[in-house]
Amino acid sequence: MTTLPPPSPVKLGLVIDLDTCVGCQACVTACKAWNTGGTGAPLADLDPWGASPEGAFLNRVHTFERLPEDGGPPQIVHFPRSCLHCEDAPCVTVCPTGASWKRAADGIVLVDEDRCMGCGLCAWACPYGAREMDPVAGVMKKCTLCADRLDDPALEPADRIPACVRTCPTGARHFGDLGDPESPVSQLVAERGGRDLLPDLGTRPVNKYLPPRTRDRAPGAPALDPVATDARGFLGWLDRALSTLPRLG
């Protein structure tokens, strides 16, 4: 059903720490590996060893440059982008076939690959570019929060979290219940001022992004300004001698 279910008390999602992410792409690789071998159709590539490879990914890491308004030092911010599992997911309600749905129990937005006719309207409706058409299967692919890992008794308990979170070497990705204000992820969001992406578009994303801390300004005097005003000795003589010459430029 592509009408949205009533809001669930459990809202599973990711919290991504932009202060800690180093842009190593490990989450991208782990996501691709898991979802290629997962339960649905594989996440296909076209021309993977050729001159112009391209394929479907559920997670992409962009790199942005940020110049603080207060003249602070510029920053490079690595920015992983994937499905935000929005509470008002526009990708779900536009779907004509019922393939796109939001799970009532925990709010995960999923695609029923056996019902998807590959029209692509859900990808248009998503402001975040979270959905990509599989170039071989012709069905829409998206982040499932690794729903097939979360309750798999065959996996070690530590592995029953999304592959991207499990693999992140810097601990920049956190997974949990954002519907419970007492959960570690909710407390992290409260403590660090977690934010929504494109909040004006009314999608109410569940995933939150923790802003990077502003870097310290470099200490010390500006380069090439005089640091001593009472020069003596040889350097004092040189300074006085140079000051008598005419200036060019």
Binding site: S52, E54, F57, R60, H62, T63, R66, V77, A123, E132
Partner: peptide, 19 residues
């Protein structure tokens, strides 16, 4: 990106096209 200040893309996630 929910970042403050002047923000511009520094490096794209992939150099070829995608869907």
């Amino acid at each position: 990106t929910a970042l403050e200040g002047r923000v511009r893309l520094f490096a794209p996630p992939h150099t070829g096209p995608n869907y």
